[in-house]
C-alpha cells in the first residue's frame, strides 16, 4: 500500500510542476462553467423554475458540474494510450506493483488537484456573483452524494481504462478515445441536465452507465431523488462499476497477452 501512496505523492508533485498544462485544463473548465452559468441565468430570468429545477438548483447544478467534471471525469486515458503505444508500459510491467493500483494512484492524484482547483473556482464565482447556492436538505443527501461521487469516479476510471486498452491492438486508439470522451460528457450530463433531452433519449441513457457519472450524483445532492430511489441509484452505480471493473480487467489481461515490445 505504501508504494501506491508514494506514487500518489510523486504524481501530485509532477502535476503541480506542469503548471501550464494544469492552467490549460482549468481555463477550459472555467470557460464552460461561466458560459453555462450565464446561459441558465438568462434562461431562468423571469421564470420561477425550469423542468422542476429552481433558480438556485439550476445554478448549483452548473457549479456541481464543474466539481464532478474535475473529480469524476478527470483521468489518464491519453497517458495510458501513449504508454502502451510507445512501449513505455514495459517498464511498469517489470516492477513489483499492480498496474491497476498504480494507475488508480496516479488517477487519484490528478483528481485531487483538479478537485481543489474546481472548489477554488466555484468559491471565487460564489464570492464574485453571489448567486443562490443550494445546500443539501439532509445529511443523508450529503452522504449519498459523497458515495455517488466516489462511485462515479471509479466507474469513469474503469470505463476510460477499457477504451484506452484498445491501444494494445491498434495504434489508432486515440480516435475512439476522443469519441468516447465527448460522448461521455454529453451523456453524463456534464454540459446540461439530462432532463432537458427528449424522453426517448432520456430513457435510452437510463439503461447506460453514463448518467451515474454526473447527472445522478448532482440530483442526489439537490434532493431531487427520493430515499428509495437514491438507494437504488447507488446500487446501480455500484453494479455498473463492478461490471466495468471486471470487463476492463479481462480486456487488460487479454491485451497484455497480445502485447509485445522491442528495444528499451
Amino acid at each position: 500500500m505504501r508504494k501506491y501512496w508514494r506514487a500518489y505523492q510523486i504524481s501530485i508533485q509532477e502535476t503541480l510542476q506542469r503548471r501550464s498544462s494544469l492552467l490549460m485544463d482549468r481555463v477550459g473548465g472555467l470557460a464552460v462553467m461561466l458560459s453555462l452559468y450565464y446561459f441558465w441565468k438568462t434562461l431562468l430570468s423571469g421564470r420561477p423554475s425550469f423542468l422542476g429545477y429552481s433558480y438556485s438548483q439550476m445554478l448549483t447544478y452548473i457549479f456541481g458540474m464543474n466539481i464532478l467534471r474535475s473529480f469524476a471525469l478527470t483521468g489518464r486515458g491519453w497517458e495510458l494510450v501513449g504508454e502502451i503505444s510507445s512501449g513505455k508500459i514495459s517498464s511498469y510491467l517489470v516492477r513489483p506493483l499492480n498496474y491497476h493500483g498504480y494507475a488508480l494512484s496516479l488517477d487519484l492524484s490528478k483528481k485531487t488537484i483538479h478537485l481543489f482547483a474546481a472548489l477554488i473556482e466555484v468559491g471565487a464565482l460564489l464570492m464574485l456573483f453571489h448567486p443562490p447556492f443550494y445546500l443539501p436538505q439532509s445529511a443523508l443527501s450529503g452522504l449519498a452524494f459523497l458515495a455517488a461521487l466516489v462511485l462515479a469516479s471509479l466507474l469513469f476510471f474503469f470505463l476510460e481504462f477499457l477504451v484506452s486498452s484498445l491501444a494494445f491492438w491498434t495504434s489508432e486508439s486515440g480516435g475512439p478515445l476522443f469519441f468516447f470522451e465527448l460522448c461521455v460528457q454529453f451523456a453524463a450530463g456534464a454540459f446540461f441536465p439530462l432532463d432537458v433531452l427528449p424522453r426517448l433519449i432520456q430513457k435510452g441513457l437510463s439503461f447506460s452507465p453514463f448518467p451515474y457519472l454526473v447527472f445522478l450524483p448532482i440530483n442526489i445532492y439537490l434532493g431531487r431523488v427520493g430515499e428509495g430511489q437514491m438507494l437504488r441509484d447507488l446500487l446501480m452505480a455500484g453494479l455498473w462499476t463492478a461490471v466495468f471493473a471486471a470487463i476492463s480487467l479481462v480486456v487488460w489481461r487479454k491485451g497484455l497477452a497480445s502485447y509485445s515490445a522491442e528495444g528499451g
Partner: peptide
C-alpha cells in the same frame, strides 16, 4: 479507425 473516431467525435 483513428480518423473515424475523431470524425464521429
Amino acid at each position: 479507425l483513428g480518423s473515424v473516431g475523431f470524425l464521429l467525435g
